[in-house]
Design a binder for these strands. Structure first.
Lengths: 336, 336
DNA sequence: TTGAAAGCGCTAACAT
DNA sequence: ATGTTAGCGCTTTCAA
């Protein structure tokens, strides 16, 4: 509260505030002698620059903001940790806020971050209100969209193609002989990743002549419990599917749990697949066949992209990351 | 970047900047008529107050900072999500930074947050350099320590007693008949939670006359792989322990995996326990006996404490949260 | 109830 | 290489 200011340092070191500022920001423009003296005083006083003053005067904040749906989800946490590490190397601070999957809340958080002078924003996915996009564009805010990729020049992406990945794993399931397939999807409202994954599954089914549009889809929010309940719902219908494709690993693990409780064998009685390849996927029994997403690399890519765009606004080269299907034990063959 | 300012709003609404400021901060001190007019212009322009200017002028920021070891750890992510939700209700923004378990880095991040005008700080655990504590005290920064609790008036805590919890689960293991017990601990350097858990296990062993000081302890960093390796190391020694107490669930699950790979049955051949009760614990097979920690409640408690202290610095009533042992399947009985 | 004006701590022209 | 100084956007006395 009684923080020392630039002026305190300047007085004590017997120089002007400008010199102190230079020692801190462009040390090369000060002779070593003066610099050493100043930096010694800085250390003595435990001086820390006041962010507000700096932001006000320089109109840059060395801050990048991220608004994620929730911190309480391993995939975002892992990705953001990578973002933070990459930004730290460039002396940029990451500010994180969460929207609780609520578009109104997301706009609020974006405003808060922008008001704090964020030089750029990392946003998750593409689904948000027009009002939010209007705000972003009117204010000419630099942002990159992560966790999704579209070949769309309108935004700058660092993500992967959710449709394509869902198609790929679905094709795999079909190749293993499954013809009766159901899906447990994440909540698709305001969530383009979840939506795209459903589309991908339907596409692949249609391509194989399996009437993707009639596939049974149960939506469930992100928790093991909801995954369990969703499986129950799916099993009520007959004939029961031989394979269940899940929109994320957490739902898949919930489904596996429930199936085991019901005495079903996996994959003999039913195959189950996931999406994300979180740590859990390799630990659950049977080990989960799923889509591997390079969360860490994605975080790093998003951070680098934003850093590049900060220096040159138009320098927007979207990055598409590749995913792949990891075959483990929860997907089995149907013998004719 | 071309954000509208208070002055833009004032001009357009035909009032002074002081009035606009009042409409935003103390709406009751402005007649409804003026207020409505001003707020309409605010909405029209999509005006967002500039944080820097505000912080500079008012010396308050409505911001609370948190420095956690890493985001990439479910227990912190879960707790912080709760912190954020609680703070949001009070219109306070949470800024998160991570230290990568490095005390120097932690001080840096604390400085960055304080420089940004954080009204208070949430810090994890008690182990940090004297230099950091000096900084905190010299600047009279309000902070609460989470994820640990001591009956120590020097700090303000919102956490639990790691020693006590470790003693309790160890006593449970001993009660089940185990006499030869080893431990896979988290890295204890600069980590008081990990250290306390080792102390607790030794205490309980000593109390039962089992020479806690001679217990075999292998330290491992927070990953499944390291847990697997640690188990290998433990099994080299003979006689092999009948129970292995782990400092956290991730290490425990790693150990379980490895044991299964080696063809050992759990708990028949070896019992394994964890600590934290993350989601994984209930999913792994066999289900993990572990210490349940109320991460969400702890986050909420820390946030509330900080909010209270912000209004009245001396209002520091540490909160001790209770943990309990969750008995599942990975701990078994030794029959005499 | 409202306005005028003085800073808050810092940076960046410009001057020396 | 260093100093002087004019703001950056906002809040907050003080006056009207």
């Amino acid at each position: 509260m009684s923080s020392p200011t630039l002026e305190d340092v300047a007085r004590r070191a017997g120089v002007s505030t400008a010199t102190v500022s230079r020692c801190l920001n462009t040390p090369d423009s000060v002779v070593p002698n003066t610099r050493d003296k100043v930096l010694r005083v800085v250390a003595e006083l435990g001086y820390t620059p006041h962010f507000g003053g700096r932001a006000l005067a320089s109109n840059r904040s060395n801050t990048i903001g991220a608004v994620i749906p929730t911190m309480d989800n391993a995939i975002f946490a892992t990705g953001l940790q990578a973002v933070q590490e990459t930004l730290a190397e460039a002396n940029v601070t990451l500010l994180v806020a969460s929207s609780c999957y609520d578009p109104e809340r997301e706009l609020e958080q974006i405003r808060a971050l922008v008001g704090r002078g964020a030089d750029g924003l990392i946003l998750i996915g593409i689904a948000r209100t027009q009002k939010t996009y209007d705000f972003l564009h009117r204010r000419q805010i630099t942002y990159v969209i992560a966790w999704n990729y579209r070949s769309d020049e309108k935004h700058c992406f660092a993500g992967f193609d959710n449709v394509e990945a869902a198609e790929r794993i679905t094709k795999q399931v079909i190749d293993y002989g499954h013809r009766n397939i159901a899906m447990i999807a994440g909540v698709t409202e305001y969530n383009d990743r979840a939506t795209d994954r459903v589309i991908g599954v339907r596409n692949a089914l249609n391509l194989a002549g399996l009437a993707g549009d009639q596939m049974q889809v149960v939506e469930a929010s992100y928790s093991l419990k909801k995954g369990e309940e969703a499986l129950d719902k799916i099993l009520q219908r007959s004939p029961q599917p031989t394979a269940i494709i899940c929109g994320n690993d957490v739902l898949a693990v919930g489904a596996i749990n429930k199936a085991k409780q019901l005495g079903m064998r996996i994959p003999e009685d039913v195959s189950i697949t996931g999406f994300d390849d979180i740590e859990l996927a390799a630990v659950v029994e049977p080990r989960l066949t799923t889509v591997h997403v390079p969360h860490k690399r994605m975080g790093k890519a998003a951070a680098r992209l934003l850093l590049a765009m900060r220096d040159d606004r138009k320098n927007c080269h979207s990055i598409k990351l590749e995913t792949h299907t990891v075959l483990r034990d929860s997907l089995g063959t149907i013998l004719k």
